[in-house]
């Protein structure tokens, strides 16, 4: 799968793509809705193993090292995107 089209930014769309490739697309949930970014991952239908797969891919494909506690520390897409932005800036 291709890298992000906007290499300078890791967007919500990038994150949702990695999640859906790991664990499928949760239908009945509008991933385009405004509040998706603040909806807990488990309510979007993604369990912690799916999130760990995503952090593994972030490490391999983007060179981002995220702490193992990320799954507990970043319960929503917004929280995870914030951690990713800090890691990319570092």
């Amino acid at each position: 799968m291709a890298m992000s089209e906007s290499p300078d930014r890791f967007t919500l769309a990038d994150l949702l793509r990695l999640l859906s490739e790991s664990a499928g697309i949760p239908e009945g949930i509008d991933l385009e809705a405004e509040d998706v970014v603040d909806t807990p991952f488990y309510r979007l239908g993604y369990d912690s193993l799916a999130l760990l797969q995503v952090t593994g891919r972030l490490k391999r494909e983007y060179g981002l090292l995220l702490p193992d506690t990320i799954v507990a520390d970043a319960p929503t897409p917004r929280a995870l995107l914030t951690v990713i932005a800090h890691a990319r800036a570092a």
């Binding site: 949760p26 009945g28 909806t39």
Partner: peptide
Amino acid sequence: DPEERTADTPSARVAWLRPPGGGS
């Protein structure tokens, strides 16, 4: 099923978990 209800039902957007790939 929330999809069979009207959109303004209070909990219509509760996160139903659906199968990946458009199955039902």
